[in-house]
Amino acid sequence: MKILVPVKRVIDAYVTVRVKADESGVETSNVKMSMNPFCEIAIEEAVRLKEAGNAEEIIAVSAGSMQCQETLRTALAMGADRAILIQTEESDLQPLAIAKLLKAITDKENPGLVLMGKQAIDGDHNQTGQMLAALLNWAQGTFASKLDLESDSITVTREIDGGLETLKLKMPAVITTDLRLNEPRYASLPNIMKAKKKPLDVTTPEELGVDITPRYKTIKVSEPPKRQAGTMVESVQDLIEKLHNEAKVI
């Protein structure tokens, strides 16, 4: 079985994001970029499935600018076998367009499983996996914290509002990863070197015949309302007095 793992290049999770003064977006120049943390979890899970003998090949795929090759090299260094970049200069790639691009790749590669992050930490949409499953008419196992692979089905434990839910999905399926599925490995130096020699193919939305025209327009991006730091209290008694008499919340 092949596993397809879509990955996204995003502003690093530890960078403080700043809104541009003209409200056209957020500052991305000279900002550290990394693989979206949920995508790392997806790559890790795919590598574990391969190590356990449940998969033969892992294909990492990303859509975006030339720079996404770096993210794909990281995926290769973590254990993916080959990579595909869907290269485009469209700076506003929206989830439906990405899902359509991924469908086109899935149709070509015929993976038994698509494993991907539940959400990218830039747009926070949480859509692409569900959309891909819909376009393929496949089952979806979103927010997965545990997977059990059987011959023609996969049992997925999902994080839901009140706890956990377990579903059995027909294969092939789309799985989206939650934080507790695994802890991703760091790529070792020898593997980073080896990754440079692994195949990385480049295609385009045009070659795949996919229309990626944005469906919404961003009018402005603004700063959130700022919360002012309040007062430091000296003691528990002081705190209770303030909550009772000043804030009136207890």
Binding site: I11, T16, V17, V19, V26, I121, D122, G123, D124, R215, Y216, K217, T218, I219, K220, V221, S222, E223, P224
Partner: peptide
């Protein structure tokens, strides 16, 4: 909200 609520996007949908 986008970027964990560090920014808010105002968007107009054509769909």
């Amino acid at each position: 909200p986008i970027y964990a609520g560090n920014a808010f996007a105002t968007i107009q949908s054509t769909d």
